[in-house]
Amino acid sequence: MTDASPPDRDDDNLLAAEYVLRLLPSSEMRAFEARLEAEPDLRKEVAAWTERLAGMNPEFAEEAATGAVKDALMTRLFGAPPPRPSFWQRLGLWQGLSVASLLLAGFFAWQLMLTGSPDPAERGPLYVSEIAADDQSLRILAVYDSNAGELQLNRTDGQAAAGRALELWVIADGNAPVSLGVLPDAEAASLPLPEEFRAGVADLTLAISDEPPGGSPTGQPTGAVLAVGTVTEL
């Protein structure tokens, strides 16, 4: 075997291999790429060498990049950071009622019964909800008296941030939140529950969001969802 150059008939084929290996000087590489545009046979040579040499690909050890790389990539490509979790996804962060809260709600309900009609038989069912932040920084107990069609609210922990308002929302399964109004500064409040929610009250979700003074300007929550609660029949 000598060191003489391989025969000419191999030139294009070997040029294709060198192109795939990225061994051509940049001027030759550009000339080769210009030929590729015009010569389908040359493209086939490149594809064949790409697959042949791809036999070495398993030797590239896999190593996951950090999550920050994906975030940076998405921002560079699409201009904005990944969207915040949706209202519904954030709802999923909240879990059921604590025992203590149920007892407290029961106590409020009991008071409501005492101050209302003396005859339990005349009363409709009572429902309670603990609308609470997961860290208990905001907690509101709601009792729904089906006779009055009103929600009795007792804020037991937390308050609106300075210059902000707390807005109460009612959510029927799968539908967009509907505002029940901005909570007053007082700890106790009473808000009517719209007619369309009364029949299915046991399946409602109640939520409190952080809003500008006077409430959401859009009709949908615009600020953080601070507290969420489901409704339970007493």
Binding site: E62, E63, A65
Partner: peptide, 11 residues
């Protein structure tokens, strides 16, 4: 990206 980044990062 999720399926292939480990291989391409390895390369």
């Amino acid at each position: 990206y999720d399926l292939t980044n480990a291989k391409l990062f390895g390369v």
